[in-house]
Amino acid sequence: MRAAATDGLNRHITRMWPKREPEILQGGSIYWVIKGVIQARQPILRLDEVVGEDGIRRCAIVMKPGLIRTQHALKRPFQGWRYLKQEDAPADLPKGHTHEEPIPAELSAALAEIGVR
C-alpha cells in the first residue's frame, strides 16, 4: 500500500516494523521488484507510526521523491519491494541513463541467475 501524506512524500505502509531500523535509517533504500526483477530504488527518509482505521499499528516507510534506476537483478517478489544490505543491492545506473542497454532477455536472465548481473 502506498500513500502520500500532507507533506507530499510517498509512504509504503507495512504491517511489521523493520527489525533493521538503525541500518535502514542510515542510507537505506527500498528496492522495487517489478515482474521479478529489481529495477529501481527509493532512499528511505524515515519511519512513521500509523494506526489504521482498524486500530492496528503499522509502519509507514517514508521515501525520498523520485526513483533511482538500478541495474536489473532477478529477485522473487514477496511484496513487490524490499530493502537490501549494500553488498546484496544492484548498482545504480549512471546518471542520465534511464535504462540499461538491451541485451537478449535469455542472456540477461542467465547472468542475473548466476549473480553476474
Rank of each mutant, 00 (worst) to 15 (best):
V51W: 01
V51A: 07
G52C: 07
G52A: 04
E53H: 09
E53C: 06
E53V: 10
D54T: 06
D54R: 04
D54F: 12
G55E: 14
G55Y: 00
I56M: 02
C59M: 03
C59L: 01
A60E: 11
I61A: 10
V62E: 11
V62W: 02
V62G: 02
M63K: 08
M63Y: 07
K64L: 02
K64I: 01
P65W: 08
P65F: 08
G66F: 07
G66E: 06
G66M: 05
G66H: 05
L67N: 02
L67H: 12
I68N: 00
R69W: 12
R69E: 04
R69K: 06
T70V: 03
T70A: 11
Q71D: 04
H72Q: 00
H72L: 06
A73F: 13
A73Y: 07
A73N: 00
L74A: 02
L74N: 01
L74V: 05
L74T: 04
K75R: 14
K75T: 09
K75E: 06
K75M: 08
K75C: 01
R76D: 09
P77D: 03
P77R: 08
F78D: 09
Q79M: 00
G80C: 11
G80F: 13
W81F: 03
W81N: 09
W81T: 03
R82N: 08
R82W: 06
R82C: 01
Y83A: 00
L84C: 09
L84Y: 01
L84M: 04
L84F: 08
K85A: 07
Q86W: 02
E87S: 10
E87R: 02
E87H: 06
D88N: 03
D88C: 11
A89K: 07
A89C: 00
A91H: 00
A91E: 07
A91M: 08
D92Q: 02
D92T: 05
D92M: 04
D92W: 00
D92S: 15
L93I: 09
L93A: 04
P94D: 01
P94T: 02
P94F: 14
P94S: 12
K95D: 08
K95Q: 11
K95H: 12
G96Q: 12
H97M: 07
H97W: 14
T98G: 04
T98L: 15
H99N: 13
H99S: 10
H99Q: 14
E100A: 12
E100I: 13
E101T: 11
E101C: 03
P102D: 10
P102M: 14
P102V: 14
I103S: 10
I103A: 10
I103T: 09
I103M: 15
I103P: 03
P104T: 15
P104Y: 13
P104W: 14
A105V: 10
A105N: 13
A105G: 10
E106G: 11
E106I: 15
E106D: 15
E106R: 12
L107G: 02
L107D: 09
S108N: 14
S108Q: 14
S108Y: 12
